[in-house]
Computed example of a mutant assay.
Amino acid sequence: MLRSATGLRRVEQIMGTAISLEIAGTVPADEAGRLADEVYAWMRLVDDTFSTYKDDSEVTRLHTGDLAADDACADLRDVLAVCADLWRDTDGYFDVYATGRLDPSGYVKGWAAQVASDRLMAAGATDHSVNAGGDVRVRGWSSTGEPWRVGVRHPWDPAAVCFVLAGTDLGIATSGTYERGLHVVDPRRGGPATGLRSVTVTGPDLGRADALATAAVAMGPAGLEWLAGLPAGYESAVVTDDGRFFRSDGLPEQVV
């Protein structure tokens, strides 16, 4: 953990990925440390509740029938309600049962980071970045006094970025096949989705952006046309399996 007189930078491994937090601005170091503790406690709670790898998580117990839906915690009930709406809004391509078991991961990571960011805002830490394994929510200004700059990984070169996004109030979610292989399932075919190697969606709600990016990957090439009709405030960028790059006109992109 890096800490100065004000602000903080910290990284922890949760949900099987790196969760990085930066609190900038004039938040005193001790207060920033307390807020960071709360962020990481929240992330661990989300992992304990929603993990598909933990036998005692509520998601696993709901899937196996050991937990009734009415007895699930409020967060799980709320998430599943939103996922049902997203299933409708994406014509069924965002499907928490696409893999054959209950798995809301395509929404949860972005949602968890969004909630963490909202709580930081409410606590007065208005300049911060929360990065949950590539799902990023930035608010306010970076420690340099400039807008936050977020590099999106190149889908063939893990040491390079494909493009850089910049902003002071921005959610950035990326879904793709380049890191975990063909893990996104096309629920129509019941097999791995192909055609789009990387989809990035930006917008005000990171959980929703996460789900929209996942849905577009699941659609394959048809996702390109579908992304053109995203709701107001959401923008997109796509790298196809054959190396073509597409971006919407309003994408907050910076030249590297």
Rank of each mutant, 00 (worst) to 15 (best):
D157L: 06
A222L: 03
A69W: 02
M1H: 04
Q114V: 01
D118N: 13
A132H: 07
I14S: 03
R88G: 07
D103V: 01
A5S: 14
S51P: 02
D75L: 13
T144N: 07
A213T: 05
M15F: 13
V150S: 13
W226F: 11
G203I: 06
Y93C: 04
D56T: 08
V164K: 14
C83T: 11
R77S: 02
Y234F: 05
T99F: 00
R139T: 13
R247Q: 14
E31A: 15
V201D: 09
A215Q: 13
T90M: 02
R61H: 03
V82F: 00
D169W: 11
R34L: 14
G233L: 05
A213L: 06
V161T: 13
P28M: 03
A36E: 04
E38P: 05
L212E: 06
S143P: 00
H154A: 06
R180D: 14
Y234K: 07
R3K: 13
A36V: 04
A84N: 00
C162V: 00
D56I: 03
R244K: 12
G220Y: 10
A209F: 02
L196N: 09
A173G: 02
G203C: 01
D75I: 04
M43C: 11
T90W: 01
A84E: 13
L62T: 12
R153W: 05
L76H: 01
I14G: 00
D70N: 00
P155I: 07
T64F: 02
E31S: 08
T6N: 10
E146V: 02
V138C: 01
H183N: 03
T52I: 11
A209E: 13
T52E: 04
D30P: 01
K54E: 12
T60C: 05
I172Q: 06
L182Y: 01
G250T: 14
A218W: 03
T194I: 09
L120C: 05
D85S: 08
A216L: 11
G25D: 03
C73H: 08
R153A: 12
L21D: 04
P28F: 11
L251A: 14
E235R: 10
F246W: 14
T214S: 15
V82T: 10
